[in-house]
Design a protein around this nucleic acid. Structure first.
Length: 945
DNA sequence: GAGGTCACG
DNA sequence: GACGTACGTGACCTCT
């Protein structure tokens, strides 16, 4: 029985646009830009390799858009009229896409007057009718209409996004559009498409379009229902623009009956003939692919290789040429090439070669994620592409009776590695090397000097990833920059309860995984180094973030002492109060329920007890947050007050008094947080497991928790805060004379603002002024400010106008910042840190305005982060120089540093800390406002404020 | 895993 | 007359 036929249809035109934006600008030996072509070539390669694999192609064709007009232009002359011309260094790559396709001896289809989407739809239909399966290689949303279509012949259609390595089937479409594929056309018709200039209905975006189709079933029903809707702008638009929507429906409809220029049988995929492909690869300098071609595609799978790769296998990456980065002539990652080091002799050879290479990528494997508890299981090193090894040191240790694999003695190996890892002459590169620094420091090895690819990526690309957060993890970096899919930790060690420790992983697998990490890190480092120079990320990386890695690592190891008895006393106290509140709440509500469930609480308050003010959000659930409950309490609902108290105590107990006890490290007796150096897009640190940057302080009851953070006997805690640093920076950056004067004179800034705004200072006006000052920092809107101040939007607007008038400079700063972000795509701090805002030009109003507010705030918040980071990097040397080696820096909370020091050192340390913090901007930046620092000391953190 | 809520700067 | 309404985080809880 012959296997099922599976046709892959590659949406070539769409692919190269995406590849162009995601890949570095490479050029071939002739100087022609080929970044997108390279991406396209590797994609075809990967697809061709999957021939006859499960779900792989048996037939394959590439479909391209041909320049020109299509039948859609006859329907709507504005169709695609808005489309901006392609970037100039993409233009010469279009013909090369055809060359690449021919080089693979693959069919390449393009037809006048037909768009690629229609050809794809028609081929897909023809193939499914014949019982073939079809995979459309694209992530185009229009094509998602086809997903899941199955013909009577038995063939089905899905999609493959090769960049995300993701199959798109019906569930993925439903996830994206909220409706099944057959309704996607209706959603698209309503929302329109600014790129293709499909008009849609103005004011309707993806959210509203989805909602309408979910509710009414299809476009016509939604349009028909419009007159019965309650009066709204939406209703007007639906009625007025109904014809535009109908036209859009036709424009987005795919044509499935185009004549097929080549019959599908001709797309059969076989072994790719070598010659045309080799010539093409050579011409464009794709030497790593050329090598793979000549290696007979290099059979994957384990190859036990115990000797290090020979030096001649180490391809040196090409030096950067001008502003463009040449294509690295690296071989593809080969998991079989890595060595497993099981004898001291081999280890010594690697160490000697590392000294020669002067750059070594390292990675440690451990038994757990917490660097202060995990034990060392192995170390991997990389000296070049595929030139990497793994040194197992703690495998099979848990079970005394199991056979322990052959390994070098851990102490002996570390003693041999120590001179290398501590040598000034050898750069150690890691991905999040702070972790490895801490693991090795616990074994007496102090790794230096270092580079960190994660931090480098952050300095280059903060905010740039489409997905928003994160974006600097190794798996993601390997996909994005190396087009390589890494082995996944959970594939080795499993998930959840069934997870095993890395120490239990067989050596062959452990070697592939661990050495791959070091190999990938080495390659990323080579890519990022020239980019940091070209893209001006070097300054912030070298001066701020890189020195900070080791400082933050030290702070994490220091930890802070917490008084367990005190926390447990609070837990008991809170538990009793929670229980008491619970019974009163149940009594008042006439039933018991889960108070912690907003859903149940909302239904009881608004449906059962009938309180007013229930507003349902988009999920159809009542909101019961603090402001809502406070509103109810104002109406005399005692139960709301009780729930607020209950919430506060539950929060404090579960998040702090219980959790912090559990976080005490049994070995050190202290709590060690972990700081993320890439956690916040603005350049701030973030703290996790546990988060020590959100310990309560604003309420009296919460403040007790701060008192549980204590100094060791004979020591005190010292807390040093920057006072109003963000407002000071705003005054400097926006050049606001009145604010600068006030800061120079040491005035109460909110009081000064109140005087300027309202002509009088009292508790009320000062409070309002404070709110307005923050609103400015966060990017203002009259609705937001009005809501906060409890005034109308018009009144809020009047205040904003007055603020701009009294503090000239602010408005100009906002305007100039936004202009610059729109033009460059990123904002910058005074020290040159970039934050990218890819959604600043979004068509979606809410999304765009959100980006605008973030972009106004980022330079201010980011500059503040730069300043305290500079202070941190200088602090320990300054203290040492002042003869204060026993002062420990423990915590950073954005504008505050916490130290622990012998009581007798306080008077000497105070001015040193004050000076380092107050002068941290210098000499790089000369601020026109002083930086105020407030210092307090005490036996606990609470007392130090 | 998402959504709601709330702790911090 | 309405979209969602302040910037940046992380943790815990409930519910699907």
């Amino acid at each position: 029985m012959s296997e099922k036929q599976h046709l892959y249809l590659v949406d070539g035109s769409a692919y190269i646009f995406r590849a162009y934006h995601r890949l570095p600008p490479l050029t071939n030996p002739q100087g022609t830009p080929v970044g997108a072509v390279y991406g396209y070539t590797t994609m075809l390669w990967k697809l061709a390799e999957d021939l006859h694999k499960a779900d792989g192609p048996t037939h394959l064709a590439v479909i391209l858009d041909k320049a020109g007009t299509s039948f859609r232009n006859d329907l709507y002359d504005q169709y695609k009229a808005n489309r901006p011309p392609p970037p100039e260094d993409l233009v010469p790559q279009f013909p090369l896409i055809r060359d690449a396709t021919r080089a693979f001896s693959l069919a390449c289809i393009e037809e006048d007057a037909l768009e690629a989407d229609d050809l794809i739809a028609s081929y897909a239909r023809a193939a499914t009718l014949r019982g073939w399966d079809v995979t459309i290689v694209s992530s185009d949303k229009d094509l998602m209409q086809l997903v899941g279509k199955c013909a009577t012949g038995g063939g089905c259609i899905d999609m493959l996004d090769t960049m995300k390595n993701q199959r798109i089937d019906i569930p993925e479409v439903v996830e994206k559009f909220g409706v099944p594929p057959e309704k996607v056309g209706d959603v698209l018709a309503l929302m329109g498409d600014s790129v293709d200039n499909v008009p849609g209905i103005r004011g309707i975006g993806p959210k509203t379009a989805t909602k309408l189709i979910q509710e009414y079933g299809d476009l016509e029903s939604a349009l028909a229902a419009a007159p019965a809707m309650k009066a709204s702008k939406l209703r007007e638009s639906l009625i007025e623009q109904a014809e535009m929507a109908r036209l859009s429906r036709v424009l987005v409809q795919l044509k499935e009956d185009c004549p097929l220029p080549i019959p599908i049988e001709d797309f059969a995929l076989g072994q790719i003939p070598r010659d045309p492909l080799a010539a093409f690869l050579e011409e464009h300098g794709f030497t790593s692919l050329l090598r793979r071609l000549d290696d007979g595609k290099g059979s994957p799978g384990p190859k036990t290789q115990l000797n290090p790769a020979k030096p001649e296998n180490m391809a040196a990456p090409a030096a950067p040429a001008g502003n463009r980065q040449s294509l690295p002539s690296w071989p593809a990652v080969d998991l079989g090439a890595y060595a497993c080091i099981q004898s001291m002799g081999e280890l010594q050879q690697w160490i000697a070669r590392a000294f020669e290479a002067r750059v070594v990528a390292i990675d440690t494997e451990t038994s757990a994620l917490d660097a202060m508890r995990a034990s060392l299981v192995g170390v991997s090193l990389a000296l070049g592409p595929n030139d990497a090894c793994y040194i197992p040191l703690g495998h099979g240790g848990a079970d005394m009776f199991a056979e322990r694999p052959v390994q070098i003695d851990r102490a002996e190996a570390l003693a041999a590695l120590k001179p290398l890892l501590e040598s000034d002459a050898v750069l150690k590169v890691g991905q999040n090397i702070k972790y490895d620094i801490n693991i090795l420091a616990r074994h007496g090895v102090h790794v230096a000097p270092i580079d960190d690819t994660m931090v480098m990526s952050f300095c280059l690309d903060a905010g740039r990833s489409e997905t928003g957060l994160a974006g600097h993890g190794m798996d993601e970096l390997a996909e994005r920059h190396l087009l390589h899919t890494t082995m996944k930790f959970k594939d080795l060690c499993g998930n959840g309860k069934k997870a095993i420790s890395f120490a239990e992983v067989p050596l062959a697998d452990a070697t592939r995984y661990a050495a791959e990490d070091a190999d990938v890190t080495w390659r990323l480092h080579r890519l990022f180094q020239p980019r940091l120079v070209d893209e001006a990320g070097m300054r912030i990386y070298q001066k701020v973030d890189r020195p900070l890695v080791r400082v933050v690592a030290m702070m994490e190891r220091n930890g802070i002492k917490v008084d367990r008895e005190r926390l447990s006393g609070l837990s008991t106290e809170f538990a009793a109060q929670i229980a008491r509140l619970e019974s009163v709440i149940f009594e008042k509500c006439g039933q018991s329920f889960t108070i912690g469930s907003p859903k149940q609480l909302g239904e009881i308050l608004f449906d059962k007890l009938g309180y007013k003010g229930g507003k349902k959000g988009k999920t159809g659930q009542y909101s019961t947050d603090q402001s809502v409950l406070e509103g109810l309490a104002g109406q005399g609902a005692e139960v709301a007050t009780l729930v607020l108290e209950w919430r506060q105590l539950s929060k404090l107990k579960s998040t702090y008094t219980d959790a912090l006890q559990a976080a005490i490290n049994p070995e050190t007796g202290r709590v060690h947080t972990s700081y993320s150096l890439v956690g916040a897009q603005t350049g701030r640190l973030s703290s996790n497991e546990p988060n020590l940057q959100n310990i309560p302080i604003r309420t009296e009851i919460g403040r007790q928790i701060r008192d549980a953070f204590v100094a060791e006997p004979g020591n005190v805690l010292l807390a040093a805060d920057y006072s109003q640093i963000e407002l000071r920076l705003a005054a400097h950056m926006a050049d606001v004379p009145a604010l600068k004067e006030a800061f120079a004179a040491g005035e109460d800034i909110h009081a000064r603002t109140a005087m300027e705004m309202f002509g009088t200072v009292d508790r009320d006006t000062r409070g309002r002024a404070k709110t307005i000052n923050f609103a400015i920092l966060y990017g203002i809107s009259r609705w937001g400010l009005g809501g906060r101040l409890g005034v109308s939007a018009d009144e809020a607007q009047a205040m904003i106008d007055r603020y701009f008038e009294r503090f000239p400079g602010i408005q100009r700063y906002i305007h100039e910042t936004l202009e610059s972000v729109r033009e460059c795509g990123y904002s910058q701090t005074l020290f040159g840190r970039k934050t990218w805002f890819p959604r600043i030009g979004s068509k979606n109003q809410a999304e765009r305005q959100g980006s605008e507010r973030a972009a106004i705030n980022a330079p201010i918040q980011g500059t503040s982060a730069d300043i305290i980071k500079r202070a941190m990097a200088r602090m320990m040397p300054a203290l040492a120089e002042a003869g204060l080696p026993r002062v420990k820096m423990l915590l950073q909370v954005h504008d505050e540093l916490v130290f622990e020091l012998p009581e007798g050192d306080v008077e000497k340390a105070r001015p040193v800390i004050e000076r380092v913090m107050a002068t941290a901007a210098e000499p790089a930046v000369k601020l026109s406002v002083p930086l105020g620092v407030e210092i307090g000391t005490g036996l606990s953190w609470g007392a130090a404020h």
